[in-house]
């Protein structure tokens, strides 16, 4: 390369700010929500419109960075002319729609969905769902006491189709012992409400590793690796992106799981600081959760365009070199 004068000079400033080509303009959409008019851009969902008017719409399976699967149905609203309620998280707003978000039907469905979840899933680490359940007056006691938890791996062998008719006096649940098969993750499926988020995060929405999928059918549906193999035998690459999106704490970092177990996990004593991962040049934002000067959890903000909340194994777990553990080799600080 010749060292022309040019090489000594930084490039000139472009006369226009470089921008992506303009998208064709589609007129905005006007809908009515609980009697008031809302204008949202074309392509926006009913949920977007609800947010715009400041409505607190409960969501569980919805996540900003994931394709809506609309399976939890807690965000349903009443749409004039529709026989059934519609999921606000995925239904696109269309001009002329008349929406009710607080009708008797809507309140009933939300209450029942939350009640169903409460009666079948351990929500002890999902306070935001419990709060919504209280808001809608869910009362899971109506279904009786919880049935005996399943033995380890028993649910994983359930076959689709015929079931023995239940006694009915106790509510069947997904309770089962947690799966601990590696040093980084714990999968406590007694807390899993099958929102599909982890599967999406492991799949085409982010990680594209496809280590987990929904297996089985119906109430026996579960998140599983192939043949219920332990994670180290699966395709898992420990990016932790499934944990990042889990709404109930069914998936957690072993560090958090252990601290909760020994009673030392204390969010009130934790700080959260955003910084940049040092393990490559991509520039992923890390949200470091620090308790007692130790990093206890690493997340990434979903709104950051680089990560969209996702990290890799190094970003997620590569912090141990700054933990100042005693009793490690001489190199440790």
């Amino acid at each position: 390369m010749s060292e022309s004068t040019y090489w000594f000079q930084p490039p000139p400033r472009p006369s226009k700010i470089p921008l992506p080509p303009e998208e064709p303009k589609i007129p905005p959409v006007e809908i009515s929500i609980d009697g008031s008019k809302v204008v949202v851009p074309a392509g926006a969902t009913i949920l977007d419109a609800c947010k715009k008017v400041g409505l607190d719409t409960p969501t569980i399976c919805y996540h900003d960075t994931l394709t809506p699967v609309n399976v939890c149905r807690v965000c349903v609203v009443e749409l004039d002319g529709s026989r059934t309620l519609v999921p606000s998280c995925s239904r696109k707003a269309e001009t002329g729609m008349v929406i009710k978000t607080d009708s008797e039907r809507v309140r009933h469905s939300r209450k029942m969905v939350l009640e169903f979840l409460q009666s079948s899933v351990d929500l002890s680490t999902a306070p935001q769902i419990v709060k919504q359940a209280e808001r809608y007056g869910a009362n899971s006691a109506r279904y009786g006491e919880s049935a005996t938890p399943a033995a380890a791996n028993e649910r994983d062998h359930r076959h689709a189709g015929h079931h023995e008719f239940p006694p009915g006096n106790r509510a069947q649940t997904v309770a089962q012992p947690p799966k601990i098969d590696n040093d980084l993750y714990v999968r406590d499926y007694a807390k899993c409400l099958l929102c599909y988020k982890c599967v999406e995060a492991c799949g085409t929405d982010a990680q594209n590793t496809f280590a987990i999928a929904v297996a089985g059918r119906g109430f026996d549906g579960r998140i599983s690796t192939e043949f219920n193999n332990p994670l180290p035998d699966s395709a898992c690459v420990y990016c932790g992106n499934c944990i990042g999106v889990c709404p109930t704490g069914a998936l957690s970092f072993k560090s958090e799981f252990d601290m909760r177990k020994e009673g030392t996990w204390d969010e009130s004593k934790q700080t959260k600081t955003d910084t940049i991962c040092s393990f490559c040049g991509v520039g992923c934002t890390l949200s470091l959760h620090v308790q007692d000067n130790r990093i206890v959890k690493v997340m990434s903000p979903g709104e950051q365009e680089i990560t969209r909340g996702n990290l890799c194994i190094k970003g997620r777990f590569g912090y141990s070199h700054v933990q100042n553990e005693p009793d490690k080799d001489a190199r440790t600080r």
């Binding site: 079948s120 009915g168 006096n169 099958l194």
Partner: peptide, 30 residues
């Protein structure tokens, strides 16, 4: 048996309905 299990109302609803039918059938309501 046949609910695919995807959405909460059907996945849990179907089993709660079955349990309720069982309770009433057996004459042992909660």
């Amino acid at each position: 048996d046949e609910s695919c299990g995807q959405c909460v109302p059907c996945r849990v609803g179907a089993i709660r309905q079955e349990e309720l039918v069982a309770r009433l059938r057996r004459g042992k309501p909660n």
